[in-house]
């Protein structure tokens, strides 16, 4: 066999260097968040705080209503995710298992709208939401996001892979369409549903521009919006800013560590379509 271009050792060194660069901001964030103010600005930088200032976290959450932000983020994330799962399951079932007039056209129109950047919809949606009286409300934060064309496509593909005979069998066994969907298709599509849910949770938790424009009051801000406002309030107290950033980032990092298989397979699948 010919020699490979790079030895295993070189590959490890290159990948490790890259990994350090990727991790550095997170390490630096956590390190700063645990420092005393005098160590924050120290040069050369201090990597491991001489005394771990966990108090920075409580100080940060007291200087802005992070509890409220956190609560809002959880409410919005959970409800949008549940809502999207429901609409997606029903729609994907219709597209994969029911034959109806206009199916092709509806499908094509939805496919076409995926081409349009979401930013273009921002202003008309703002007008719609304000006409509905949903500015500065949970409805405004949640309702526009409880359906996703991408998720419908993803699940539809998955539903297609369930053999037709299974739905025949279920019919004969006494299932109506809805029961079949609920008792057979949904349990079978669990991996796809988890992927869809995770991508939604990540997207919803991190969403910024929409929550920024539809909320006015502190009571309804989500974490990213609150954090962004906090930068002005915290000024140059970087240890507090980093503590707050950690609070925003950490839940998603933990979620990702536990469920990464589903997240990565979802992202990979979105690529394989192309």
């Amino acid at each position: 066999m010919r020699k490979e271009a790079l030895s295993k050792g070189t590959i490890y060194i290159l990948l490790s260097l890259g990994a350090i660069l990727m991790l550095l901001p997170f390490v630096w964030m956590i390190s700063t968040s645990l420092k005393a103010p005098n160590e924050v600005m120290a040069m050369p930088p201090v990597w491991i705080p001489s005394e771990w200032q966990f108090g920075n976290y409580s100080e940060a959450s007291e200087s802005a209503p992070f509890g409220t932000y956190f609560f809002n983020s959880i409410v919005v994330t959970v409800l949008t995710t549940i809502g999207e799962l429901l609409t997606t399951i029903l729609a994907a079932y219709a597209f994969s298992r029911i034959n109806f007039y206009g199916k092709g056209i509806v499908f094509a129109v939805l496919l076409g709208t995926m081409m349009v950047p979401g930013e273009m919809l921002l202003i008309p949606n703002f007008v719609t939401v304000s006409n509905l009286g949903w500015i500065d409300s949970y409805e405004g934060l949640i309702v526009p996001w409880i359906a996703s064309i991408f998720s419908i496509f993803l699940l539809r593909q998955y539903f297609f892979s369930v053999p037709q005979e299974l739905s025949y069998a279920a019919k004969v066994d006494g299932c109506s369409d809805f029961k079949f969907l609920w008792y057979v298709m949904v349990p079978l599509a669990k991996p796809a549903l988890i992927t869809i849910a995770l991508l939604k949770i990540i997207g919803s938790w991190n969403a910024f521009l929409w929550p920024l424009i539809v909320t006015n009051s502190q009571e309804l801000r989500t974490l990213p919006v609150g954090l962004s406002a906090f930068t002005t309030e915290a000024g140059i107290k970087y240890e507090l800013l980093m503590a707050a950033s950690t609070m925003v980032i950490l839940p998603m990092l933990l979620l990702f560590f536990v469920m990464q298989k589903y997240v990565i397979s979802g992202v990979a699948r979105s690529g394989l379509k192309g």
């Binding site: 053999p163 005979e165 299974l166 025949y168 069998a169 279920a170 019919k171 004969v172 066994d173 006494g174 299932c175 109506s176 008792y183 057979v184 349990p187 079978l188 669990k190």
Partner: peptide
């Protein structure tokens, strides 16, 4: 079909993959 009171066996068996044998038989 669900109202005809028929039993059907398919070429591919069409068992519910997520259910145990007992649950499969109990399903109808």
């Amino acid at each position: 079909a669900e109202k005809r009171g028929i039993g059907m066996v398919f070429q591919s068996y069409a068992l519910y993959p997520h259910l145990s044998v007992l649950k499969n038989i109990m399903f109808p």
